[in-house]
Amino acid sequence: DTQGYVANYVETEQIIEKGGQKTSFVQTRGSIPLYWTQYPNLKYKPHMELSHEDHVAAYSKHLIDQHQRYGNQVLLNLIDQRGNEEDLERGYRAAVAAAALPGVRYEPFDFHAECRGMRYDRLNVLIDRISHEQTEFGYFMANGGSIMMQQTGVFRTNCVDCLDRTNVVQSMLAKRQMTAALKMLEVVKGDESNPKLDGLFNTVWADHADMISTQYSGTGALKTDFTRTGKRTHIGMIRDGINSLTRYYKNNFSDGFRQDTIDLILGKYVVADGEG
Rank of each mutant, 00 (worst) to 15 (best):
N8I: 08
N8Y: 06
V10W: 11
E11K: 04
I15W: 00
E17K: 15
E17C: 07
K18G: 11
Q21L: 11
S24E: 05
V26Q: 10
V26K: 09
Q27S: 15
I32Y: 10
T37V: 12
N41W: 02
N41T: 06
L50C: 00
S51I: 13
S51G: 12
H55T: 07
A58E: 15
H62E: 03
L63V: 07
R69W: 10
R69H: 09
N72V: 07
L78R: 01
D80P: 03
Q81V: 14
G83P: 01
D87G: 14
E89P: 14
A95Y: 04
A98T: 05
A98C: 03
A100K: 12
L101E: 06
P102Y: 06
P102F: 06
Y106Q: 02
F111M: 07
F111I: 04
C115N: 09
M118N: 09
Y120R: 01
R122G: 03
N124P: 10
N124E: 05
V125C: 15
V125N: 07
D128W: 02
Q134W: 13
Y139T: 07
A142F: 07
G144K: 07
S146R: 13
S146N: 13
T152I: 03
G153W: 00
V154A: 00
F155I: 08
R156G: 09
T157F: 01
T157C: 08
D161S: 12
T166W: 05
N167L: 06
V168Y: 00
V168L: 00
Q170Y: 05
M172G: 06
A174Q: 02
Q177D: 09
M178G: 00
A180G: 02
L182M: 00
V187C: 06
V188G: 00
K189A: 11
E192Y: 09
K196M: 15
T203G: 13
A206P: 07
D210G: 09
A221Q: 02
G230Y: 09
K231F: 14
H234N: 15
I235S: 14
Y249R: 08
G256P: 04
Q259D: 10
Q259A: 11
L266H: 08
G274V: 11
G276F: 12
